[in-house]
């Protein structure tokens, strides 16, 4: 078991690190180029192309994570009251997460078609009289749609975890505070949120790993366009490796992303440890 795990997890990781320092198109043997790939990524090559890709990916990831956590927490708070049909609402919130992102992205691509017969255009026109928009080629809307797509697919997970965390909080804490005259806002601020820190830590770490991985929208809908607005890091890795057969450059970007995630996770853990002693 350990051997299998090392072979299928750590050997590829070693491959990944090794290949980052080569130039290689799979046909001719790999050539050692040292730090050249990393230099390319962190330089003004092609008008800072790769740095822009990284910046864009991080920006979207922050937007996704924020919407996910704030929205998920709010919905979980509402679902945590004694309401009839709570289970049904929870199911509906989680439902988008069970589908294949690729298949749903394909569906989205069909919905977003630019003609007046495109589904979204059709509905918006009937409801609000909005003239047809060519969504997929719209550099303002497409990134927004991409971010919302990832949030849509992931927020159910967040809601379920927050809900479980909320239900784990000892009722006595609230009762005691109420006797002392605390109002709802104070209860939220001084009991609920501090009690939720472990769940919050878990969500922000797993959520960050997920949020950095937007690939369905560029791969299936936009091919990274319009104007590279949805050209994310994961798409760039795939495109360079399998599209342009630049395996060295692709893996170098993977390495950069991996290190970024590790730094982020380390920073988060440290932050929480310092502030809350988790």
């Amino acid at each position: 078991m350990v051997i299998y795990f090392v072979l299928t997890t750590f050997v590829p990781l070693a491959f990944l690190v090794g290949m980052s320092f080569t130039e290689w198109n799979i046909i001719s043997p790999p050539r050692w180029v040292g730090l050249q790939n990393l230099q390319k990524i962190f330089s003004d090559f092609d008008n800072w192309f790769y740095l822009k890709v990284i910046g864009r990916t991080v920006l979207y990831a922050i937007a996704i994570l924020t919407l996910n956590i704030v929205g998920g927490f709010f919905v979980a708070l509402i679902l945590n009251q004694s309401l009839k049909g709570k289970g049904l609402f929870r199911t509906m919130w989680y439902l988008p997460s069970v589908f294949s992102g690729a298949v749903i992205a394909l569906l989205l691509r069909i919905y977003l078609a630019g003609s007046s017969q495109g589904v979204l255009n059709m509905v918006l026109n009937r409801l609000f009289g909005i003239p047809p928009v060519d969504w997929i080629y719209n550099p303002t809307w497409m990134p927004v749609i991409g971010v919302l797509f990832v949030v849509w697919q992931g927020i159910g997970f967040t809601v379920i975890f927050f809900l479980a965390g909320l239900q784990g909080i000892d009722e006595n804490l609230y009762d005691a505070a109420r006797i002392d005259g605390a109002n709802d806002v104070q209860l939220l601020r001084y009991i609920t949120i501090p009690q939720m820190i472990p769940v919050l830590l878990f969500i922000s770490v797993t959520g960050m790993i997920g949020s950095m991985q937007m690939w369905e929208v560029p791969r299936i809908i936009t091919a990274g366009g319009p104007n590279h607005m949805t050209y994310t890091l994961v798409y760039s890795i795939q495109n360079d490796a399998f599209g342009n057969l630049e395996f060295g450059l692709g893996t170098a970007q993977s390495l950069v992303m991996f290190v970024m995630l590790l730094v982020f996770i380390g920073w988060q853990l440290n932050q929480y440890r310092r502030q809350y002693g988790v």
Partner: peptide, 16 residues
């Protein structure tokens, strides 16, 4: 292994 996003392993796994 849980923190390693499998999406980054696609290229080396392909080569393996």
């Amino acid at each position: 292994g849980m923190v390693m996003p499998s999406i980054l392993m696609l290229v080396p796994m392909f080569l393996q």
